[in-house]
């Protein structure tokens, strides 16, 4: 059973609350905010639209006509008591394998990141492919899988001038985080590679194949092999 968590709840306008877990243990906080989001989603609380859990916080959105910040705060505290009692039952994670072409036009910021970390580009790739990532949350844009970054000595600065368009499949790092872009969008993260797999399929629900808690590994492929994956979807390994 997890230790009871310390929660801070902040007003975030008249239609949202930000709930932050502060146990001092990043994994425990992550488990707490995702369990809380799950509880709120399944409890069907009147007026609560849904919850957006990320690393250590969850944004709870509601309709202030049907409920209020005060009532939602009470529901959150009730949820925490139930979760502390029941524990955070986690499902078995699925695994995803992501082929990536690094550098060149596929990863225009690879050399910048290498220089900034004091690495060769090969070392950056080795660190990026040398770790099993846990998908921490689905973020912007379009359900991006947000993960703790590779084992780099320094946080990676965001671009000073964000790009107006980053292609779908772009594999990026910033700060202590890593991500894949499911759709074309503007972006300020450092793009070090690109996967030929299609991550987002707007024709099906869910739009993306993973959920928070699933695991993911990157694997380097040759530029010549990029096209051989054309049209393939990112799927969980059997």
């Amino acid at each position: 059973m997890p230790a009871p968590s310390t929660l801070d709840i902040y007003e975030s306008g008249d239609a949202a609350l930000r709930v932050v877990a502060r146990s001092g243990d990043a994994d425990a906080d992550w488990a707490t905010v995702h369990s809380l989001a799950g509880w709120l989603a399944t409890a069907g609380v009147d007026g609560v639209h849904g919850a957006v859990p990320t690393y250590d916080s969850v944004l709870v959105e509601f309709d202030p006509y049907l409920t209020s910040a005060r009532q939602v705060r009470a529901f959150v505290l009730l949820a925490m008591r139930q979760l502390d009692f029941a524990g955070t039952g986690r499902r078995k994670p699925r695994r995803f394998d992501v082929p990536v072409v690094y550098g060149g036009s596929y990863g225009p910021d690879l050399e910048r990141v290498a220089e900034q970390q004091g690495f060769t580009t090969a070392e950056v790739i080795a660190r990026h492919t040398g770790k099993t990532y846990v998908i921490r949350c689905l973020g912007a844009p379009a359900g991006s899988p947000m993960m703790d970054g590779p084992e780099f000595p320094f946080p990676v600065p965001r671009l000073k001038d964000p790009r107006l368009s980053v292609p779908a499949g772009a594999v990026s790092v910033a700060g202590r985080q890593a991500v894949i872009a499911p759709a074309k969008a503007p972006g300020g993260w450092c793009v070090i590679g690109q996967t030929p797999l299609t991550v987002l399929d707007a024709a099906r629900e869910p739009l993306v194949p993973y959920v928070p808690g699933d695991e993911l590994r990157f694997r380097q492929i040759a530029e010549a092999d990029f096209d051989s994956f054309a049209g393939q979807f990112l799927e969980a390994q059997p």
Partner: peptide, 28 residues
């Protein structure tokens, strides 16, 4: 760390402008 931001959030992402997020905002 990336986190959920509400519609209506006012941020200061640059030295040039204030940003007020509306309904099309990226959720994190």
């Amino acid at each position: 760390l990336s986190r959920g931001v509400p519609v209506g959030a006012i941020e200061v992402p640059s030295r040039d402008e204030l940003l007020v997020l509306h309904r099309g905002r990226g959720v994190t």
